[in-house]
Amino acid sequence: MSRLLTAMNELIQIFKEYAGKEGDAKTLSKGEVKTLLSKELGINLEAAKDKAALDKMFKDLDANADGTVDFTEFITLVAAITAILQGS
């Protein structure tokens, strides 16, 4: 398997690992997103001082406004973080 296919498979597996612990196995709840970002990227959203900005981030991430983050929305987040890191 190519490196890119391996990376894509890993993203799918990570999503599946965190999705469904608080509900639907095909989506991430706000809590599941927080846990995923904390464990996989070391981002502690609980320590965020600007809770309104944090709520806006989740609202923007939830493109279809269903209150959860589906795989497409998750991949959008990963791509945005990747682009930020690549620019560093």
Rank of each mutant, 00 (worst) to 15 (best):
M8T: 14
E22H: 12
A53Q: 08
K56A: 13
V33K: 08
F74L: 00
T35I: 10
Q86S: 12
E73I: 00
G20Y: 06
L28S: 09
K16S: 15
D66T: 11
I14G: 10
Y18P: 06
A65Q: 11
I84V: 05
K26E: 13
R3I: 15
V78D: 03
E22L: 13
K39C: 05
I14Q: 12
I43M: 07
K39S: 11
K16C: 14
L36T: 00
I81T: 11
D60V: 11
Q86K: 11
D24T: 10
F71W: 01
A80T: 13
A19G: 10
D70S: 04
T68S: 08
L41N: 05
E10S: 14
K21M: 11
S29L: 07
A63F: 01
M57L: 12
A25I: 07
D50L: 05
A52H: 02
G31L: 11
E17W: 09
G20H: 06
A47R: 06
R3G: 13
V33S: 05
T27Y: 04
D60F: 07
K21W: 13
I75F: 00
M57Q: 12
V78Q: 03
M8K: 14
T72C: 00
D55V: 02
K59P: 00
T35C: 12
T6I: 13
A25W: 06
K21G: 11
E17G: 14
Y18M: 09
A48F: 08
D24C: 09
D62F: 03
K59D: 09
L11Q: 15
T76C: 01
I14D: 05
L37P: 00
I12V: 15
T6R: 15
L37H: 01
L54K: 04
L11V: 09
V69I: 09
K34F: 04
K34L: 07
M8G: 13
K49H: 10
F58C: 09
M57P: 01
K30G: 08
F71D: 06
K26R: 10
T76F: 01
D66N: 14
Q13C: 13
Q86M: 08
T82L: 04
F15Q: 08
K49S: 14
T72N: 02
N9R: 14
M1L: 14
T27G: 03
E73M: 01
A79Q: 03
A80L: 11
D50K: 07
T35N: 13
F58N: 10
D62P: 04
F71A: 05
L54M: 06
T35H: 11
I14L: 12
A53V: 05
S38Y: 09
A47S: 09
G87K: 12
L45R: 03
A80C: 12
S88W: 05
A52F: 05
